[in-house]
Nucleic acid binder design. Sequence first.
DNA 1: GTCTATAGATTGATAGAC
DNA 2: GTCTATCAATCTATAGAC
Lengths: 189, 189
Amino acid sequence: MLQAKGEKTRNEIIECAKDLFYHKGFEATSFSDIVDAAGVNRGNIYHHFKSKDDILRAVIEQRLQEFAALLASWESQLADPRARLIAFVHMVVARQDELARYGCPIGSLNTELGKDRPVLQHEARKLFDLFRDWLAQQLALLGVAEAGQAMAMHVLGRAQGIALMAHVYNDSAYLLRETTQLEDWLKQL
Amino acid sequence: MLQAKGEKTRNEIIECAKDLFYHKGFEATSFSDIVDAAGVNRGNIYHHFKSKDDILRAVIEQRLQEFAALLASWESQLADPRARLIAFVHMVVARQDELARYGCPIGSLNTELGKDRPVLQHEARKLFDLFRDWLAQQLALLGVAEAGQAMAMHVLGRAQGIALMAHVYNDSAYLLRETTQLEDWLKQL
DNA sequence: GTCTATAGATTGATAGAC
DNA sequence: GTCTATCAATCTATAGAC
């Protein structure tokens, strides 16, 4: 990796902020929380980011890259679009513990920002766009894309509802029941 | 209504806080926001509530009463449990504008509190319990309650996923497609 | 019950020496 | 690029006169 000295501090800030924004929420996370977790100097954070909003933009960009890499790995490892759709559901199952504890990092972030931070939410929505377009692409390969992106939105909505309720009730058993049901539905498409 | 003078101020605070917590989020709403909206004096708010958390508890209690009254009205007006389930879906449709703008007041509140306010979230979860138990009751009357509350949780999760995605994309058309689908599914139970 | 005044801590953000 | 020191604003909350 081509990475200057300062990039290391910057990446540590991004990683810590990513976890904090997910675990506490964006508004509830303070600069003190971030510098304490990252172990960097208070004032120094402004050398890398011009504002708290700017840190969030970097966190979103980081998540976009991580999820894009994940989708790319599924595409390269799984030739069958149906298997790829099931890989999406299996991701929810694999992350059941953190989903039950903190909710979906994408859904909860967009929910918070959507209330009164429209500009930032427009950035965060790109995380949904990424999955929506990828799901729509797999559904098109299956030949069930008559309704365009509508079915991709349906799958996303199902997954979000599952993550939200599993979080509210901290209930992994519910998550497993519902993901099994969603998987069965995808298999019979 | 038996209501002393001070109750009026208290109720105005609750009503304004209810809207602000919904429109901005709990953490993002300050005391200044509340007293400005309610038109009451700054320090005076502590005569009625001992803390911001205490205001939220009163707001949750208020919402519990409102929703309980709504469910009771459906029960008295609709004898058929299937019609009652459909009334639940129609509520989502009727509130499509505010859902697309601010998300679900119950889901978004629980999502925020679930991250790091476990005690308050335990209170907010009662709003979900209310709907879950009521849905389970109607499903039992329909004779499809073999799975206990599991199907009620399924319906709630579907509704939450719909509200969340409609909010993220500010998309009422999606909400209408999905609620129609959910209604059709309930009709054929 | 209502009001003014303000405490005490924390917020996001800056300036400038090293 | 890192550090100390600190800004002005805002936060929740309190004290006490009326």
